[in-house]
Amino acid sequence: MTLTELRYIVALGQEQHFGRAAERCNVSQPTLSIAVKKLEDELGVTLFERTKQGVLVTPLGERIIAMASGVLERTAEIKDVASGDANQLQGPMALGTLPTVGPYLLPQFIPLLREMASGMPLFVEEAPQQTLAAKLRNGDLDALLVTAPFNEPDIVTQALFEEPLVLLLPARHHLASKQAIDATDLNPTEVLLLDEGHAFRERVLAAFPQLRIQDPAHGSMRGSSFETLRHMVASGLGVTILPQAAANAPLYSPDILVTRPFVAPGPKRTVVLAWRVSFPRHKAIDMLRRAIQASSAAYWNYNSAREPESAGVMVENRDW
């Protein structure tokens, strides 16, 4: 029994698909399949049922996978302790982020991070929050850039800033003449949302319950990402609700797309940084946090409770 085999069965148990599990572990599907079968033979048990529809975890398999996950978490802690004496600002950092967060914050803070810690490049992975949480616990990732709420055992979280949600709409839309949008201004049949299963979709629906209208003709007016929503709005299909940073991405000129804030107090999302309690590179985490906050327009423009200036870093923020 090896740690690699344990990592394979944990991945397969979570993905329930040999191809996706192999891709996640960066190995070929036959390699993963052979290793899993070898472990089953060694233990003398069946961990997975192979069916035409996919992979099912047996009851005993669930117990063993849970134990294997615990072993991997403890292994990550050992690695953390072993690396504690090394230069904390030297060596790559593995950062996981949501597809609805990373593309809009990474370009803001990576240039500054390179100046502040040139020996600490970022390995970045985008994935759903559940996948990121599992990889953080297992030690595959060092830190996460996600949104609240994020509650995981043995994981520390720190709120970075709150970011307002805004309405993105065609420049000639009748609501573009308003300085601020009230919830009652929204026509549910023209508001484009992300596909079901996206956490941000649920955040928007919680803020605007009237958008839960079930209109068959509106059912196809969904997008798989913020960018697809933006393109559909630009084409005149409707309006959408996005975080400020995503809405302000400079892809279309102001005569095509505009943004409008919501009447105060408008809806917001909280961006948080998360890492393992045992992670020893505290200076690296602090440097990452400082780079994100120092270069984020949302932090400086929409957060009144900010930390006092500290010695050591002076930055120029073009959004001030």
Rank of each mutant, 00 (worst) to 15 (best):
R20H: 14
R20W: 10
A21K: 12
A21Y: 09
R24D: 12
C25I: 08
C25R: 14
N26F: 11
V27Y: 06
S28T: 11
S28N: 03
L32E: 00
A35W: 01
A35F: 02
K37S: 11
K38D: 07
E42R: 14
E42Y: 08
L43V: 05
V45K: 06
V45W: 04
T46Y: 01
T51Q: 10
T51I: 09
T51F: 03
K52P: 11
L56H: 15
T58I: 06
P59G: 06
L60F: 06
G61W: 02
G61R: 03
G61E: 02
G61Q: 09
E62G: 07
R63C: 00
I64Y: 04
I64R: 01
I65F: 05
A68G: 07
G70A: 04
G70K: 00
G70Y: 03
V71E: 08
V71T: 11
R74V: 02
R74G: 09
E77H: 10
E77G: 08
I78H: 08
K79W: 10
V81W: 03
A82T: 05
A82W: 04
S83C: 02
A86N: 08
Q90R: 10
P92D: 14
M93N: 01
M93V: 12
M93E: 00
A94E: 13
L95A: 06
T97A: 13
P99L: 12
P99E: 11
V101L: 12
G102P: 02
G102R: 12
P103L: 09
P103C: 09
Y104P: 00
L105E: 07
Q108R: 08
Q108N: 05
F109T: 00
P111F: 10
R114Y: 12
R114E: 15
R114K: 15
E115A: 14
E115M: 14
M116I: 15
M116E: 11
M116Q: 14
A117M: 04
S118H: 15
G119Y: 14
G119V: 06
G119W: 04
M120A: 09
L122E: 03
F123L: 15
V124R: 05
E125R: 15
A127W: 03
Q129L: 09
T131W: 02
L132I: 10
L132N: 04
A133G: 13
A133R: 04
A134T: 10
A134H: 13
A134Q: 12
L136M: 07
N138I: 10
G139N: 06
D142L: 05
A143W: 08
V146Y: 07
V146M: 05
A148F: 13
F150H: 13
N151A: 08
E152R: 12
P153R: 12
P153V: 07
P153T: 04
I155W: 01
V156H: 11
Q158R: 15
A159L: 09
L160K: 01
L160E: 03
